[in-house]
Amino acid sequence: MKKTISLSATLSATLSAIILGATLSAPVLAQTTLKKVQDSGEITMGVRESSSPLSFTLGNGQFAGYHIDICHAIIENIKKTVGKPVTVKYTPVTSQNRIPLTQNGTVDLECGSTTNNATRQKDVSFGLTTYVTEVRMAVKANSGLTKISQLNGKTVATTTGTTSVQHIRKHKNAEKVSFKEVFGKDHADSFLLLESGRADAFVMDDNLLAGLIANAKNPKDFKIVGETLSVEPIAIMIRKDDPGMKRIVDITIRGLMDSGELDKLYKKWFLSPIPPKNTTVNLVMGATLKGLLKDPNDNPMESYAAK
């Protein structure tokens, strides 16, 4: 029977992973994700409250988004592999706790907006890159600002606890422009700094900027401009040293890419009206992601910066 074969293959993979894990490192969990799902009959998806359109809440414990749709496809394949129905549980995570919660097994599949970088790869593993964000700046449409070099003497906003802070710090250093930095406590707060005129530019991931602008009082008053400060691959996060799980995640994503399904999902979440307010993010797919759909990889952010 086909099912038995795949089951025994999984079990032997599981077994070898356990032995491998036990000898190579001291793993937090002595079992693989697939084994855990098979035993418990449930899988926990780590989700974000407000990382629209990748992963966000609709209220009442409902979560939706581009990455959540992809994760549901992955879970369908996990169900086939373990050969039994699996209950999906949702656990909201934050930027601060998503890595520890993935490591300690609270979350099996993190479907949020996590940048795949080399530092994080020491602690966790990532699926094939499914979204690429470019760090750019939002300015008032009538400000005439179009380049980083024009920021001399201006005030630049960004959000505390994000990698964007590092990018402007590096850029500032390299271009010898001097500007004042202000930090919003969250993205909405940083956008308020721009809206109220306390800041002249807001540097952040372009998808987040587009989302904030779409929901602003007058979206036409703002635009996204300037060179790309950084290219960041965003991916689904899983536990490290779990080859069985990594394989299912990657096979599913590759399948979605080959069938054109991923492109449809992108159009659904980035180019059409989405809940809760039925606004459109309106962000066309960038060249980097287009290239990745043809030739997928799970390289960390550092390999993009080298270009």
Partner: peptide, 10 residues
């Protein structure tokens, strides 16, 4: 908040 994000050593 910022340093733990940059260094991953929360």
């Amino acid at each position: 908040m910022q340093a733990q994000e940059e260094t991953s050593r929360g």
